[in-house]
Write a protein that binds this DNA or RNA. Structure first.
Lengths: 351, 351
DNA sequence: TTGTAAGCGTTATCAG
DNA sequence: CTGATAACGCTTACAA
């Protein structure tokens, strides 16, 4: 504050050194808690710095140390509230460690994802949390370009050769739980709805496995993107198979997509759960307030962001070899109104 | 890409210059489209740069030019989906101009808001979009510290002396529309629910004015924060006034808070709209899917983020004097199921 | 314990 | 039109 002419010169180490008649190195050492400066002098320097309203020029520090104090968060889709909570947890943890968060969204665009990785590298971003696009090579590029820590969010099987940190919810348990729940209700024609390029194809695999294990034929619908329109199109295609063949229940990877289904179902003048049972994943705050309340798997999204940040910062500040770690967050089924027994007992078991 | 030893040296201007046997200055000029280098040489340089996988070290550029290419987005609350869309529009616009977005959340904490402004200033952030906390002086600090462009989001009357850009929805129209709608339904005991320190106190003022203009006594409830708990507490306090005095309708500043009311109402075993009409603001995507669908004012949130970014970038890249501008986004009432005539005709008109 | 000086990779000034 | 050269503000050997 003090001498704050709008955009006026900011105090530098040299200013402080000059004022005190000491060397710049001493001031730097003092202010960074490095050894090499006596206690009395250190105190004097600290006081003067505070009084002159000094704070470090991060650009200079970054240039010199190749450390920016920036942590990148690169996600697929800024519109999914899921990421809000992840980002919240992430930001809180970073803030506690004095790092700022650089955020970017790839919008499911491989080129943009690549461009952002590069931009982050150019900025000497210290570590990257990435929710990658399937088919993209952002994680690989990041490590090749920077060698800096990488945390993969919700991408259990993405780039399996990458020595990366991983945080994801227990997709296997979620899919098994979903199928079990629906089968118990009497469903046979269950389909999964996923979005292309989401790098969550492992989820679809888990779904297939779960279905097979109970003797049912798995079907996976792929929407071209996460928009409600795309979801409606996909759902419409399924309904056109006719009442005896279309799905009686649909399982999604996210509550966000489930919302899309809700909207589509209204467009199609159908009813949840009478005509279609819907199962989400994430348990967004609003999901319990929907009409009908959404059956879904809860996952600690904030904890996810927090853990990702924590692992990255740990790796960053540790001298020892960074061992790739994996955090799998448990899921918990919340049974609510969007799932029920199928209306029509389907005779032709679809095996 | 090319010579990418993990974390290996990145190509610098000097590398290119050496390879080509020219000066560093020439390479810099060529790559930045500055005059001072012939066309043939420029072409050669560009090719070699691309081939060597060169990209600028932003830390060095930032140190030298005092321009980081970073745009700050400082909001109050990362958990409100409202900001997701604002951030989306903001990020898209910035990306289109080659700027990255540094995001921060003050969590309604004045000290943290101040710290973030300072951190952004230290980073040579080029411009700041701020959804400020009431009572905070972040905007002022920013301008004093940096003299860089400032855009205020949804803070119509915050720091009125600040020569800042402003983007906000038409709070006056929203409040007038809300009151008009509720009065038409037959409500008299209408209350506004706001959160402390939100710097949206102008909204409450508009509410009061609108109420008075129809001859009703305005009452404003203040929740200590945006959590569902706090909202429930506040609502409970109102209900305890008894059926003849408690509000029959509540108007909020955001759908997010309206969600909190939905949750609280369930806790209290009440019914919307029978026991309480609820009116939101923002028209989040999910709001139409709620039980009951939320009556609310639509506002173009993405456009808000886009406009904020656009104005900042414009100011940044213009040589002429930056004239403070204001963008007021129109609102549009979406009448849905959360508002209806009050259950009990209230006899004692609460004037 | 303290001071000195060499960079980090750019941009920008100023002689050739 | 070109090519040295001096900053930008900081960290970090290394010398005193």
């Amino acid at each position: 504050m003090s001498d704050g002419a709008p955009g006026g010169q900011r105090t530098t180490l040299a200013d402080i050194a000059r004022r005190l008649g000491v060397s710049v190195g001493a001031v730097s050492a003092a202010l960074n808690g490095r050894p090499g400066v006596g206690d009395p002098l250190r105190r004097t320097i600290e006081q003067t710095a505070a009084q002159m309203g000094y704070s470090r020029n991060r650009s200079a520090v970054a240039l010199r140390t190749r450390r920016s104090g920036l942590i990148g968060l690169l996600i697929r889709n800024l519109r999914n509230p899921f990421f809000l909570d992840v980002a919240e947890g992430f930001e809180r943890e970073c803030a506690a460690h004095g790092s700022e968060v650089l955020i970017g969204s790839s919008h499911y665009d491989v080129a943009r994802e690549q461009a952002l990785v590069r931009a982050f590298a150019d900025r000497a971003v210290d570590a990257l949390a990435l929710a990658p696009i399937g088919g993209g090579t952002a994680g690989q590029s990041w490590q090749a370009m920077t060698g800096a820590p990488l945390a993969l969010i919700n991408a259990a099987t993405y780039g399996q050769h990458l020595p990366a940190l991983r945080v994801h919810s227990d997709g296997k348990a979620a899919m098994e739980g979903a199928v079990r729940h629906l089968v118990a209700l009497g469903h046979h024609r269950i389909t999964a709805l996923a979005v292309k390029n989401s790098s969550e194809s492992d989820r679809s695999e888990y779904f297939r496995a779960a279905m097979r294990s109970v003797g049912l034929r798995p079907r996976v619908l792929l929407a071209t993107n996460t928009s409600w329109n795309a979801i409606e199109l996909t759902l419409r295609a399924d309904r056109s198979r006719g009442p005896a063949r279309c799905a009686t229940a649909v399982v999604t990877n996210s509550d966000d997509m489930a919302h899309g289904i809700y909207a589509a179902v209204r467009q199609l003048h159908l009813n949840i759960p009478r005509d279609l049972s819907v199962l989400g994943n994430d348990d967004l705050d609003t999901s319990a307030l929907l009409d009908p309340p959404l059956t879904t798997h809860y996952v600690d999204r904030r904890g996810m962001g927090r853990d990702a940040a924590r692992m990255l910062l740990q790796t960053l500040n540790s001298t020892t070899q960074p061992q790739p770690r994996e955090v799998v967050l448990p899921v918990a089924l919340q049974v609510r109104g969007s799932t029920s027994a199928p209306l029509t007992r389907d005779v032709a078991r679809d095996r």
